[in-house]
Amino acid sequence: MYLQTLHLHQFRNYLNQMVEFSAPKTILVGNNAQGKSNLLEAVELLSTLKSHRVTRDRDLVREGAEEGKIVATLERETGTVDLGLTLRRNGRRTVAKRGESLKRQIEFLGTLNAVQFSSLDLELVRGSPESRRRWLDTLVIQLEPFYAHILHQYNKILRQRNALLKLLAENAKPIAQNTELALWDAQLVSVGSRVTRRRARALQRLAPIAQTWHQAISSSMEVLEVKYAPNIGLEQDNSEWVQQAFFDKIQQRSVAEQYQGTTLVGPHRDEIEFFINQTPARQYGSQGQQRTLVLALKLAELKLIEEVVGEPPLLLLDDVLAELDLNRQNQLLDTIQERFQTLIATTHLSAFDRAWLNSSQILTVQAGQISPIVNA
């Protein structure tokens, strides 16, 4: 797939900017806080309808405006697709595809596939379990867009169940015989099991690819293991078994839930574990080892999405090259070549090989204004 054009209107610090992409690699160069990351964020939103930087649409709309728009033209093997996303400061967002408004956002997902790699991802190993769950969920949405609906359902059920548990805790009412809670339990188990199984299957496919990349980058000196540690356990990938394990865990934690007034069982408490040579990477991995690990994960994402979707996804590199040493930079750049359309945000061009610069479209970004550099 190839992103041909991107039009940003009242989005972040962009007033009205059209960009035409004329090469497989586009380098966005400029000082910090000029709009480079904002452009990559716009592409990320078209891919997953989520931003890894903010959760509220009002933060994406330009100051003083009521709504912002992202419009793009994407070339896929099946033909050209026009995409549109309207973000409102005080209202519901809307999406459009091929000029037609879509009633369900799920119909929008899966059209543009992209892998984002930013300096923030280097915290993936040593950061919170929530950040790892968010990373995995974003990957699963790329592989199976309907997962976004399942995840939304689960989070909605979780909020309702937590509200009831809190109420019961405040009123000191026993939860064992509560009929309403039993109904929420059933829904939590039904939908939560679907989340757990899809996460498990995605990691099962990703792990060996990441392991292969990790061996290549580390010159076969290290072995990477990626393990899914679901909150309910997962001895069998069987719907009935998973649901029963879920129910059993809820019964085990019922007293603790009663005292704490919150749900302690389910995929919202899952963990993803990384091991290097059988040693936990989070506690004992060096900074260099952790960066190698994350790079291997991102390269594995590219390959897995390409396998599942049937086309290479876009790669978005947000100020990450400066965080990698020369060896890791070369591994990444050699992998990209002309295979993946790549948008790169950077503060300087010195990290790039001259051949790379000559074959790339280079754009300068300054205060929300984008202009080409003819001779870099």
Rank of each mutant, 00 (worst) to 15 (best):
N16K: 06
Q187P: 00
L183C: 06
T196N: 02
A114C: 09
T5Y: 02
P208Q: 10
D137A: 11
T212H: 12
R197T: 10
H214Y: 10
S101Y: 12
K298M: 11
T342R: 02
A23S: 14
L139T: 02
G64Y: 01
A42F: 06
R328K: 12
Q331A: 15
R199M: 02
L136H: 02
E257T: 12
Q153G: 01
Q187I: 08
Q331K: 02
A182W: 09
S350H: 14
K227Y: 06
V365R: 01
V226S: 03
T196S: 04
P174H: 06
S101C: 05
E257L: 10
P129G: 14
L234M: 11
E222T: 08
L60K: 04
L112Q: 03
S118P: 01
A23Y: 07
H52K: 12
T26I: 06
A376Y: 14
R197M: 15
N231S: 15
A256P: 05
L158W: 00
W356N: 00
A182D: 02
L60S: 04
E130V: 10
T342F: 03
S22P: 03
L122M: 11
R56H: 14
A207M: 11
P267L: 05
S131H: 12
A65Y: 08
V294R: 00
H52I: 09
Y154N: 01
L343H: 06
V320I: 14
V95R: 04
K303Q: 14
I106A: 11
T55R: 11
N358L: 10
T262D: 04
L349T: 01
N13W: 07
I276H: 08
S220K: 13
R161A: 07
E240L: 13
P174W: 08
H152C: 04
Y2Q: 15
R76V: 11
D318H: 03
F117E: 01
L363V: 04
S254H: 07
E306V: 04
S371V: 06
E170M: 14
E338C: 02
